[in-house]
């Protein structure tokens, strides 16, 4: 196995293009488990951690651009204001050690339906910057996930960054697991209110082959929230929102929980996160 350690982004793209089957590695919290257990013996590893610029974020046209090796710890420390939903989700990942190394871009690379970054990225309408020696392209987040651990990247492509619109209203994230730390989500839910456009974004995790929006729920809620009066959300609206979120999921039974539980839990999380987010809007 070759170990490639590009010092620049251009070199990283060349390494990926010139070594078919090469596996990129950022925080290594997914890749190393596979290697340690002999589940994968790739011909090469392309280590992205020596490309310094990738560990940083910047602001581009009202969007926050998160570099490919920026850790969860750094997201929590530096982006909780602009990207509260993603920061909340990041706080629930693994343990301090895992958050110190693990990255949101690595979460996309792994493309697990249970990844905690996905619901807030979906809810805010993030964009994935895919790059290769052939050129770069933007992939809308909802088009990125193709199936369980399958994603819309060509073999020679690397993710350079994720662009996430800066906060335009309250955001919330909720995740169900058996303890507070170190759990893969049984299911999870993210919501982002855009109080300027009066739209709603959602993201469902771990309750379908891919993370996904609850489109009908978004439309229904945007049309039925008392945006002007800032009254409490009517019970019927919250309940209907919960139902529509649950309807958007196609969960399975597995070791972490039965499908029926997931469906029920999603409707509860949808109502609760809406309640929290709406309180913030009302008090603002």
């Amino acid at each position: 196995m070759e170990f490639l350690r590009p010092a620049t982004w251009r070199e990283a793209l060349e390494a990926q293009a010139n070594h078919p089957g090469a596996v990129p590695i950022a925080g290594g919290t997914d890749v190393m488990v596979e290697l340690n257990f002999g589940r994968n013996r790739p011909p090469a590893l392309v280590d992205l951690t020596a490309v310094d610029e990738l560990a940083e974020w910047s602001t581009v046209d009202g969007e926050i651009r998160i570099g490919a090796t920026m850790s969860y710890t750094k997201i929590i420390a530096e982006l909780a204001e602009e990207l509260p939903g993603l920061a909340m989700a990041a706080r629930t990942v693994g343990s301090p050690q895992i958050r110190n190394r693990g990255t949101a871009v690595g979460n996309l690379g792994a493309a697990s339906p249970a990844g905690d970054s996905h619901p807030p990225l979906l809810a805010t309408g993030a964009t994935v910057e895919a790059d290769s020696v052939r050129g770069s392209r933007d992939i809308r987040i909802e088009e990125f996930y193709l199936g369980v651990k399958r994603k819309a990247l060509e073999p020679d492509e690397l993710i350079r960054a994720i662009r996430v619109p800066a906060k335009r209203g309250p955001q919330q994230f909720s995740k169900i697991g058996t303890r507070n730390a170190m759990v893969i989500a049984v299911c999870s839910f993210g919501i982002a209110l855009n109080t300027l456009d009066r739209t709603v974004g959602t993201g469902i995790g771990s309750a379908a082959p891919t993370p996904r929006h609850a489109g009908d729920a978004e439309e229904f809620l945007a049309g039925n929230l008392p945006w002007d009066d800032r009254d409490p959300v009517p019970d019927g609206v919250a309940r209907r929102f919960g139902e529509l979120v649950a309807d958007a999921a196609v969960p399975i039974d597995d070791v972490r929980g039965p499908a029926r539980y997931r469906t029920h839990a999603l409707s509860v999380m949808a109502r609760r996160t809406l309640g929290w987010a709406w309180e913030e809007y009302r008090c603002a």
Binding site: I25, N36, I98
Partner: peptide, 19 residues
């Protein structure tokens, strides 16, 4: 397996040697 890597605690089992 926790060690400090550049002053930050990390699981050394999840850091590739070359990194």
């Amino acid at each position: 397996c926790t060690v400090y890597l550049d002053g930050v605690p990390a699981c050394s089992c999840l850091v590739a040697a070359g990194q």
